[in-house]
Design a protein around this nucleic acid. Structure first.
Length: 127
DNA sequence: TTTCTAACA
DNA sequence: TGTTAGAA
């Protein structure tokens, strides 16, 4: 039921590096138990890693992911946890849409400047 | 061989 | 997060 796996097995399974796992631990997203100095990961850690990776796919920062996961594991107040996650999702969506709009604007500016360049070159060629 | 910590051309 | 040196 409750198995222990090495850092290697976990990195192989999720295609990440040991450095990444240790980094997540440093950031407080993971806290595997220890066998002496070596890290021992259990099912809970594996589930947690899944949530971390999912959070990354949604574009959340590790700090945001940490708070979300901490709430997720806190059995009390599931409704509040879900509402918090929805709020973060909305913020993320708004942020991405804004970036998308900014890029569209920048692209349009590039087009305008390019048109100016083309016109000026024609002037030089003609006169 | 594997994992760990710590540090950074 | 990558890479790597040196230790356990």
């Amino acid at each position: 039921m409750n198995y222990n796996i090495t850092i290697r097995q976990l990195t192989d399974e999720f295609e990440i590096t040991t450095r990444t796992l240790r980094f997540y631990e440093d950031q407080g997203l993971l806290n595997p138990s220890r066998n002496g100095r070596n890290r021992i990961f259990c099912e809970g850690d594996r589930t947690r890693l899944n949530l971390i990776l999912r959070g990354k796919r949604m574009g959340f920062s590790l700090a945001e992911i940490r708070t979300i996961i901490d709430m997720y594991e806190d059995k009390s107040g599931e409704r509040q946890q879900l509402e918090h996650l929805q709020q973060k999702i909305n913020e993320q969506r708004r942020s991405l849409l804004q970036k998308q709009a900014d890029i569209v604007e920048t692209l349009a500016e590039l087009d305008r400047v390019e048109v100016g360049c083309v016109e000026r070159v024609r002037e030089l060629d003609n006169g």
